[in-house]
Nucleic acid binder design. Structure first.
Lengths: 194, 194
DNA sequence: CACTCCTTTCAGTAATTCCTGAAAGTTCAG
DNA sequence: CTGAACTTTCAGGAATTACTGAAAGGAGTG
């Protein structure tokens, strides 16, 4: 590995974290390397930089493409495939969220939906069913929120994040405003009475 | 496994998904079983229900405890340890989020912080540094949001979720209101001039 | 302190996942 | 068509992770 110490540390860290993130070491390392590379890299450059086999690089790049974490590029007059990580970190974040949802949440949601179709017969089953329903409700609520939020452009998303829980204060304010409007309406109606 | 078909399907699904969620099959199955059980179970009941070794159950319960996904209970006059999943699904969700953050995000954030301390020397390093800074910025923004939001009680959290991206409309409204107030202030100031 | 009943640890094995080198596949130039 | 320059596939070995049974560790009881 002929990398600057910083890049090397970053690459190794991603390799180690890989297992916690549900990808393997090589995939993590390759992604990290591409992420900090100023220009697209071809497979052999990755082999060279990370000291792993050509076939491993090929398979790992394939996986990264499946995750939409890496983009295939071509350089005119060069037959080789070159790869980069998308530039926009927010876009990367979206892709990651989308893929994780697809792999980690959607299958469970679908199983829960199916299991909720069968009518419980025993007391035990009735209990289980309620719990499945609770889990289903929660997941659905969270994924609905996500499906809604993911369409926001980056700027709005950032605003939303930076606001954090302050949003609820805002909600309280509007609630109070609504109440006020309602009570005003009530008073006016009363005044209209003969 | 002497479980009702629904429970069995649920348990097996959690077992299969386990690997995608960064836990192993047994841990997933045990959690699923406890989640739908109307009463706390002891280790031997789990052995019996899932057909796995006693020691495996012991180790897996230990891991579930580390994740705060399972609660140790005692029944008066009984020396055995009993376990349940917390009842409140929202609390479960919080625990899960907290633990995942701790394991999957915090270490990276800390590495990024360290790497951002070293001054870049070459052009290449400068580029890498900017990218690390971008990633660091994003993660920090998201985790700050999370740290803020996680303190909300369940009711407010649910409101927030159900509102989804509508929040931004609300923001637009308040922005306009602010503008209006500012312009009103301006007009008043102008009127105050001699 | 010895017995019972339960939990945990741990070394070894089973299962799974990852990685490699060899071979086959693809694409294009001549 | 042939060969060069790449990429991909895949069988099998390497590494890692999961699981088991046996043994050891408590903790309460007579």
């Amino acid at each position: 590995m002929n990398l600057t110490p910083t890049v090397q540390a970053f690459v190794l860290h991603f390799g180690e974290m890989g297992s916690r993130w549900g990808i393997n070491r090589t995939v993590g390392q390759i992604y990290a390397l591409l992420y900090v590379s100023p220009k697209p890299l071809c497979a052999d450059e990755i082999v060279e930089a990370l000291g792993i086999s050509r076939s491993n690089v090929s398979m790992s790049l394939r996986e990264l493409q499946a995750w939409n974490l890496v983009i295939l590029r071509h350089i005119p007059g060069d037959r080789r495939d070159f790869f980069t990580a998308p530039e926009d970190v927010w876009q990367i974040f979206r892709n990651l969220a989308e893929e994780r949802k697809k792999r980690e949440v959607d299958p469970t949601l679908s199983v829960l939906r199916d299991l909720l179709m069968v009518e419980p017969r025993t007391e035990e089953e009735r209990f289980a069913r309620t719990r499945l329903a609770e889990m289903h409700g929660l997941i659905e609520q969270v994924t609905n929120w996500y499906d809604d939020i993911k369409r926001l452009d980056t700027e709005r998303l950032a605003t939303l994040l930076s606001l954090g829980s302050k949003v609820t204060r805002l909600l309280d304010v509007t609630d109070k405003a609504k109440e006020k409007i309602v009570s005003m309406g009530r008073r006016r109606k009363e005044a209209d009475k003969p």
